[in-house]
Nucleic acid binder design. Structure first.
Length: 659
DNA sequence: CGGGATCGCGCC
DNA sequence: AAAGGGCGCGATCCCG
């Protein structure tokens, strides 16, 4: 906990909102700058007495020098600063400001005050009073409404305070700092190239319109992506209905196949996907345009501990963690280029080919402030490095410590590559194979999934079957021997992937035994909580573990079968879990903790301002005279609690966000 | 009219 | 027995 001698005060605000004017759609900054903005109530609680009322009536001096607490600090701080700016309330010195929604997210993966209070305090809250305030200004409240609202606001402040009083000591100082940094980053914002933004909006609006004109059902007044309309058009054209991507592991491939087969004759098929991509793109642009301030700064938010691994997540309308990497390219007809061969040609050529009439790169909009430089630095293959350390794969670790990437380290550890030449240039195919294995197989993927991931991650086509594998299925030509002592014969479709998966599992007993170990430990936790302690010292918890019997349809026979599965509660929702998934959670969480240590170091470098983060990537702007190498060094350091895990980073100075 | 569920599209 | 996982948001449909 921060200095206990300092007074602690919970601080909550209530503001006007309605259907068209809300924080949810506008984000706190834009919401508070609006002419409709009105904060008609604040509530405070200092552990002894609670007060609520109009901000003009609060004894603000009493809050001076205290540590303030809010549940969703960014909102309350933005409201408070807006009132100061408007001269409605005085500027008060504080000893700190803590966000109890972050505390709760850290402790139990619950963010809202309602869920936090229910889980941590055993108190059921109702937001009825708040919901009734929709569309009402202070003058519109009846005296009864006002009384209810005052009570409601006081109780929120009390709950916020109680969360801190009971649980604040369980939130490590470092995590509190990370929470604070997250809020600072979002409120400080990023510079936007507003001229380019305008240009992009014009072009993508035209592209969307042109694309929409080619969706025949839109003329009939149907929505552009109406699944019902699409199905009707398939039926009328006498072609099979489109496959639903999420219904199959290879749904993406099935859809591509369907589009390939019928897209030529029915142009609306590819225009539909184009419409979705352009629409999403344009929506991001419009959100940026609505929220950017007159000085060209865009405030934004990211969620501290947004995932149960405690990784950050996107927040509030514009997600800084999923800006598309490949630009949208426009063709001579003014439509989106979606043909795979053309896209490949574009990416392979140094300058834009003549058939491209516009290139829209959303990342180009995010630029450093005047006089600053932007730096992008990311941890190199952090998850496989963490996995090797966790399972104690000393050979891998030694090779990585010698400077090899995990992909090359794995090849060298098995003696598959011994030349002094780098694997990446020396044997492209082996490099791709090792990359696919490292990225895909650590968390339990089977052959079918591996075949898909190998294609996606390393461009490997494993669909061809090699009759050799029937007889000689190991690298040495020896048949692999199963647990029953008999050779394992592999043949038929998917034989290549099957062989590779098996070989990898045989060569990585540390990983497979960790799957089994965690799977067994989870099973043994049935009826209680399963907990994994992480090297950094924190724990991941899975509540109310159960072994459940579920009826599952057999893919091949179509018959319903009983399957025992293990499930547990994460943040109030039930998930199916198994060894591979737990290892994945574990490694993702460990990698996040490694990244956090780097962030805390970077943040201390004078003249460096972290802008935002994307899981293993930090985007910062640096003042004149700062050496970007300092950021690279801060990123490449192994945390003291993870000695022996070689950490490496890649850092570049850029004129706009890119990767 | 709003919430829930589902699907698609982005990212690591 | 086998099984990669983690996010957010817009569009649509359905239901109360």
């Amino acid at each position: 906990m921060s200095n206990p001698t300092k007074p602690i005060i919970a601080f909550d605000t209530e503001t006007y909102y309605d259907k068209d004017y809300s924080v949810k759609t506008m984000g706190p900054s834009r919401y508070c700058r609006d002419s409709r903005f009105e904060c008609y109530m604040v509530s405070v609680y200092d552990g002894e007495s609670a007060w609520s009322g109009h901000p003009k009536d609060l004894n603000w001096g009493a809050l001076s020098g205290a540590v303030w607490l809010s549940h969703n600090q960014t909102f309350d701080q933005t409201v408070y600063e807006e009132m100061v700016k408007r001269g409605q309330v005085p500027a008060i010195q504080r000893a700190g400001w803590k966000d109890t929604s972050h505390l709760s997210a850290y402790l139990c993966n619950r963010r809202s005050l309602k869920e936090a209070c229910e889980f941590l305090l055993g108190v059921k809250l109702t937001k009825d009073v708040r919901d009734q305030a929709k569309g009402k200004r202070w003058g519109d409240f009846t005296s009864e409404d006002r009384e209810a609202m005052l009570n409601y606001a006081r109780s929120d402040a009390v709950h916020c305070y109680t969360l801190w009083a009971k649980y604040g000591h369980l939130w490590p100082e470092k995590e509190q700092r990370l929470s604070e940094m997250t809020i600072e980053q979002g409120m400080r914002g990023v510079q936007i190239d507003t001229e380019l933004l305008k240009e992009y909006i014009v072009i993508s609006t035209q592209m969307l319109q042109k694309t929409e004109d080619l969706l025949p059902w839109v003329k009939e007044g149907r929505p552009p992506t109406s699944p019902k309309a699409m199905a009707e058009y398939c039926r009328a054209a006498d072609i099979p209905c489109f496959p639903i991507k999420s219904h199959f592991d290879d749904g993406e491939a099935r859809y591509a196949e369907w589009e390939q087969a019928y897209g030529k004759k029915h142009p609306w098929i590819s225009n539909l996907s184009s419409w979705r991509s352009i629409n999403k793109f344009l929506d991001s642009l419009q959100t940026i345009a609505e929220r950017v301030r007159d000085d060209g700064i865009l405030p934004f938010g990211t969620k501290y501990a947004g995932a149960h691994t405690l990784r950050w997540a996107g927040d509030a309308g514009i997600n800084f963690q999923n800006f598309r990497k490949v630009p949208l390219f426009r063709d001579q007809q003014g439509l989106l280029i979606s043909d795979a061969a053309l896209l490949k040609e574009i990416s392979n050529s140094k300058s834009l080919p003549g058939f491209v009439t516009a290139s829209l790169d959303i990342r180009k909009l995010l630029i450093p402030r005047p006089g600053m430089r932007m730096v992008v630095s990311d941890l190199s293959q952090i998850e496989p490095r963490c996995l090797a350390k966790i399972v104690g794969d000393d050979l891998m670790l030694a090779n990585m410590a010698a400077g090899y990437s995990p992909y090359e380290a794995a090849a060298r550890a098995r003696g598959e590559w011994t030349s002094p030449e780098p694997l990446k240039s020396g044997d492209k195919e082996l490099y791709a194979l090792k990359k696919a294995q490292i990225l895909a197989l650590g968390y339990g993927a089977g052959p079918d999934k591996f075949e898909l991931m190998a294609k996606e991650l390393a461009g490997l086509d494993l669909s061809a079957q090699d009759p050799e594998f029937i007889q000689t299925i190991s690298e040495t030509g020896e048949p692999c021997i199963g647990s029953d002592g008999k050779p394992i014969l592999i043949s038929g479709k998917g034989s290549t992937a099957k062989r590779i998966v098996k070989e990898w599992r045989d060569a990585n007993p540390g990983v497979t035994s960790l799957w089994k170990q965690l799977d067994a430990a989870l099973k043994n936790s049935a009826g209680g909580t399963f907990e994994m302690e992480l090297p950094s010292g924190r724990s991941m918890r899975y509540g109310q573990v159960r072994n459940e019997c579920r009826m599952v349809r057999n893919e091949e026979t179509g018959a319903l079968e009983r399957r025992w599965v293990k499930t547990a509660d994460i943040g109030g929702r039930r998930y199916k879990l198994y060894g591979g998934a737990l290892v994945e959670n574990l490694i993702q969480a460990v990698a996040r903790d490694v990244f956090c240590e780097a962030l805390l170091r970077i943040e201390k470098i004078p003249g460096v301002h972290i802008l935002w983060t994307v899981h293993d990537e930090v985007v910062a702007e640096i003042e004149n005279g700062v050496d970007p190498e300092e950021i690279d060094r801060a990123m490449s350091e192994t945390p003291p609690w993870f000695a022996g895990c070689p950490v490496s980073a890649e850092t570049q100075v850029v004129s706009h966000y890119t990767k």
